[in-house]
Design a protein around this nucleic acid. Structure first.
Lengths: 144, 144
DNA sequence: CCGGATCCGTTTCGATACTG
DNA sequence: CAGTATCGAAACGGATCCGG
């Protein structure tokens, strides 16, 4: 019970607040898998995130849920499954994600498709609106 | 000798590459102190970053220097001092920083001046050009 | 099978004291 | 001023086990 929330104990700076929420290696990967790769179940995160352990994944999903970035709910189609989806707060991480992807693609050695990166870089607002549009449609839980 | 570089061992995704470089609590705080708060010496980071320990600060400065995000050099004015400054690669983290600050200011409880945040949010390219302009002038090492 | 929980060895972090 | 050295605490990561 070490990590209780409380309205940002002493880190008033916005950057610190953000870092407290997703300032680790895994949280943003989970958000990316959710946002850009269509991952929705525990095991889809396990595959997509580069080798995260199950206990760490559980921990991060709980933290992100506690922060209101994602929501966990039982699948209506398959009752054994849980489905995770982004909240508005989580979707609004898209610009952060996009800038990190653009920077990584520019300066590190990656295999990112240049077209997608250029799209993110040159038309960020279109990228964001596409993400939003996809998440509008996803309410209907297709293929759950 | 655990952390040797190598051209991104297996993390080809740009996001993973970025997270490997600055995916921890402190690295981006240091970049922010450098970029937005004018910190340039070890002790200025110690004050600005919210209570970072000296060994951690040393470690992060070394890592960031090894990644080519900042450069450490002796002050020409005061030969006892070392001055840290951002490289182009480091300055290009400004958009990432800005988006994280905007998100944190929107969703977490912070004391950020709204005007600055709105400026970052509505005119990101102006914010970026201001940062760049400031770093042009900083070559002359004023007050070192 | 799905979604975890638990155990345990290893790694990293972080506070403080100390040094050139 | 700019870091090392030390050492306990915490986080990580792999493997395994468990409930539905």
């Amino acid at each position: 019970m070490r990590r209780q929330e409380g309205p940002s104990r002493r880190s008033r700076c916005p950057l610190n607040a953000s870092l407290e929420v997703f300032g680790d290696s895994w949280s943003l990967m989970i958000v990316r898998d959710l946002m850009l790769r269509g991952a929705r179940t525990f095991n889809e995160f396990l595959d997509g995130g580069e080798g995260i352990a199950t206990n760490i994944l559980t921990n991060r999903l709980q933290r992100l849920a506690a922060e209101g970035i994602l929501i966990k709910a039982r699948s209506t189609a398959d009752h054994r499954k849980y489905l995770y989806r982004l909240t508005e707060k989580g979707i609004d991480l898209a610009p952060v994600l996009a800038e990190m992807i653009v920077w990584g693609a520019r300066y590190e050695d990656t295999d990112a498709p240049p077209a997608v990166i250029r799209e993110m870089e040159l038309h960020p607002e279109e990228f964001l609106s596409q993400v939003r549009k996809q998440w509008k449609n996803r309410r209907s839980e297709p293929g759950g």
